[in-house]
């Protein structure tokens, strides 16, 4: 009785382990937070990029408009990649672009915008990166689509053409 039970349980355990490992192989081992959360827009106070006036979040995000909040920096290489799509998005007047200039300095950032164009309606500077954390961001570039004071979609890494189409579909 004992000699039959234990081996079969043992074999069963190892079979299950095998199946789990087998399935686990297909999962990515890099963690990315959920991108479809309906979270409130965090409130913050930041200095404006152009002048040092303080801007508070409630002033920026009005109720019935779409906003595209984009975290960028002149030192970030993927930001250059996504820039053309931001310029494309700017053409759509149903959406406003809010730029978070992440740990950057004014000279580099301005020449970045001069060279590639300025897609943003308003730019705030996140000097020490703490405001981005309030948004739940952890790298550059990262973007959030905001509607009615809620984050409805989140983009980790540079946006591409598909993302652009998706955004345009949502705001239409």
């Amino acid at each position: 009785m004992k000699s039959r039970y234990i081996p079969s349980i043992l074999i069963l355990i190892f079979l299950i382990t095998f199946v789990i490992f087998f399935k686990g192989l297909k999962n990515s081992n890099i963690y990315t937070p959920d991108t479809n959360l309906k979270k409130e827009v965090p409130s913050f106070e930041l200095k404006s990029f152009e002048n040092d006036s303080i801007v508070i979040s409630e002033k920026i995000f009005q109720d019935n408009d779409y906003y595209f909040m984009n975290i960028w920096a002149s030192w970030c290489i993927p930001c250059k990649e996504e820039h053309e799509f931001l310029m494309e998005l700017k053409k759509n007047d149903k959406i406003q672009l809010v730029g978070f200039n992440y740990k950057d300095n004014f000279t580099n950032a301005s020449s970045f915008l001069k060279d590639l164009g300025n897609p943003y309606d308003i730019i705030l500077s996140d000097k020490d990166g703490t405001a981005s954390i309030e948004w739940g961001a952890y790298g550059v570039p990262e973007s959030f689509l905001v509607y009615q004071n809620k984050i409805i979609k989140r983009f980790i890494g540079p946006i591409n053409n598909d993302d652009l189409l998706e955004i345009q579909k949502i705001i239409r």
Binding site: L10, I11, F14, F18, F21, F22, L25
Partner: peptide, 15 residues
């Protein structure tokens, strides 16, 4: 996948 199959072959052989 290769190591996984190899590993479990050895485990089942020893059981």
């Amino acid at each position: 996948l290769f190591i996984l199959i190899f590993l479990f072959t050895l485990i089942f052989l020893s059981i």
